[in-house]
Design a protein around this nucleic acid. Sequence first.
DNA 1: TCTGGGGTCCTAGGACCC
DNA 2: TCTGGGGTCCTAGGACCC
Length: 453
Amino acid sequence: MGGVRREPSILHLDLDAFFAAVEQRDKPSLRGRPVVVGGTGGRGVVSTASYEARAFGARSAMPTAEARRLCPPGTAFLGGRFAAYRRTSEVVMALLRELSPLVEPVSIDEAYVDLAAGDHDLSVPGVTALAAELKARIAVATGGVTGSVGIGTSKAVAKIGSELDKPDGLTVVPPGEELAVLHPLPVRALGGVGPATAERLAQIGVKTIGDLHRLSLVDLTSLVGQAHGAGLYRLARADDDRPVVTDREAKSVSAEETFARDLTDPARLAAEIEALATRVGSRLQRSGTSGRTVTLKVRRYDFSTLTRSQTLAHAVDDPRQIAEVAHRLLGAVDRSGGLRLLGVGVSGLSPYAQGDLFAEAAGPAEVVEPVEVVEPAEPVELPADPEPGRAVVAWYPGQDVVHPDLGSGWVWGSGLNRVTVRFEGPRTTPGPVRTLAADDPDLQPADPPDWAP
DNA sequence: TCTGGGGTCCTAGGACCC
DNA sequence: TCTGGGGTCCTAGGACCC
């Protein structure tokens, strides 16, 4: 097997029940209780269930209506506060970037780090100690959110490692032990094996990664396709040299909406198209990109789903142009019986809108610099035995605060004795980040946010 | 009161070109 | 006169991920 690292230098971090954990942190009355975050309407699904809610069977992607049946009275069903999750995520990602410049955020609650790009002892005891300290720092800086860490010689092994000991886990797979760890696990543990692939494999008696290892490359590719088969063949052998990639350019931008009730009225449908095109167009414009292919997504009353797309001669980012194409595409689909969902997307992205030569010559109109982080002079004190969810913290990331001299802002991070606050600056320039004593009497919480029912 | 929203990657057929 | 082959673009759908 070629190209595999010899040292356990890939770290994977997965924050535990992240959205629910942030809610429990911000609202002490929710701690120890089942919490479900997701769509709260009739057609909503669960984004995240706290471990207390999982005990009753609530799971991600489950219809919220089903979670309501499973969970006892007193369970909190929350709609989600994405700004708070994003802020907390940024705090964690910043801690990861202190370990290495090579950080790949996979999603808001998950990231890979290539420790070989930092200055670290990459022995098994070395990376174990590093991960333990990272977990403690995360718990302190986020006010009690925990994460599970896996470390190994590849992304696949690190990711599986982080799954093995959840929540608040730490698993290091020593070099040479990869196959012993992988082979007893079900094939579903591998990234890229979902329900359909698992079912196909089960039909020929392949249940574990060890079973998968015994399959020939020809058998595997004939079963699941060329690219997928070749990928699984290598993963079963722990042969994975994928690099940690810091920033990937987006390939598409889309927005979609499931309606509370199916829509048939042409005027209502047209208005929805306009709204979706506006969301997509403004996001394209904000990121300075545009794309040539406009795609309409339609889900009918019976859940049958189809897409229709059109590729234009020039890239677009203008909501009116996007909507015009989407209207045309919708006109050609059967809407009888009603539509449950509409979506609008733009792909085939390239920088800058079509014909916008002046903008291209001048570069992006306005670049908002990343937040300047002022590190506290003294090292962050870590609790001797951090107890997730129980630590008494006065400040939490994302919390809105006010200061008589510095104005209003929000908490970027907090330690036992200090709090880092980003104060709002003028519209397009980020305000300063200031580190204050945690017991500074001038610093006060702003009005608490409203909570979803 | 079954089944969200935002993405990525792959496959396969037809058009078109050389 | 029996029937190429490779490459790219476009479209549609499906699997998968968080």
